[in-house]
Nucleic acid binder design. Structure first.
Lengths: 130, 130
DNA sequence: ATTTGTTTACGAAGATATTCGTATATTCAT
DNA sequence: ATGAATATACGAATATCTTCGTAAACAAAT
């Protein structure tokens, strides 16, 4: 499976992807109006970015109507994994658990979340014993 | 407390920091020779980068002898935390445990490491009950 | 002292990412 | 049809990051 590797989105591109992951297929204006809330950029800036992302294969678009509809062409999970792997590699010297300890140490996680993580660890250990 | 905030190192800057964290205070040449093993760049490129990092406050240097000695001015842990926090924020929508699950799922961790994480989780839960 | 090798300093080219102005097309209301 | 509003396309300015050429300073060897 798998065609060519997905390339790493830039900071701005990630902001756009987040909107599309959350809201689903949207027009440039819709995306732009969300972005405007947290940063200030012109409309054509958002447009241009989304066009470039489309060229790169990060977004797909439906141009059948005058106002194009864009959607993420890469999944949130794949992108998260890609960026996370890179961070483990370049920032945590390849040690995922080092990163995990840091992450747990500096953020309040709810009891439920912690429980979920523990269960997960147990499963992994069971796997390993086999 | 807190003096001005530490600014985010770029990709290349991070490579240099990693060398200095590992080897301690070093000359440009020493750093460069390590970098050469994994990438190819000219000596003056490494020099320039380290000079810029010094200006930015990422490195400190001892210029008392002809050949300057550079050292990291930011700690590995602080930098890791900074980059990790940003990733949790921008890539994992603020959910540290989401990131943790991803990290555990996609990397083999040794039994010892997993055990360490579990102990840590227990401690956190103990804290929370208080 | 002159040459040779190593170092820093400086400036600028090249690459990539971000921003926006302007032109052109389309739609809709009048 | 004309004008106002909104969309896309395009090109280019700006900013940031990365790279390196070249010159000047210095040190060591001959």
């Amino acid at each position: 499976m798998s065609a060519g590797k997905q390339l790493k989105p830039t900071e701005s591109e990630l902001e756009i992807l987040r909107v599309l992951w959350e809201k689903g297929p949207s027009t440039v204006r819709e995306v732009h109006e969300i972005l405007e809330q947290s940063k200030d950029a012109g409309y054509t800036t958002t447009l241009k970015l989304m066009q470039i992302m489309h060229e790169k294969g990060l977004l797909q678009r439906d141009a059948s109507s005058k106002t194009h509809i864009y959607a993420a062409a890469v999944s949130q999970e794949n992108t998260q994994r890609q960026l996370l792997d890179k961070m483990i590699d370049t920032v945590f010297n390849g040690s995922a658990s080092q990163l995990v300890l840091q992450a747990l140490g500096n953020h309040k996680s709810s009891k439920e979340e912690l429980e979920k993580i523990k269960q997960y660890l147990n499963e992994i250990e069971k796997q390993q014993r086999k």
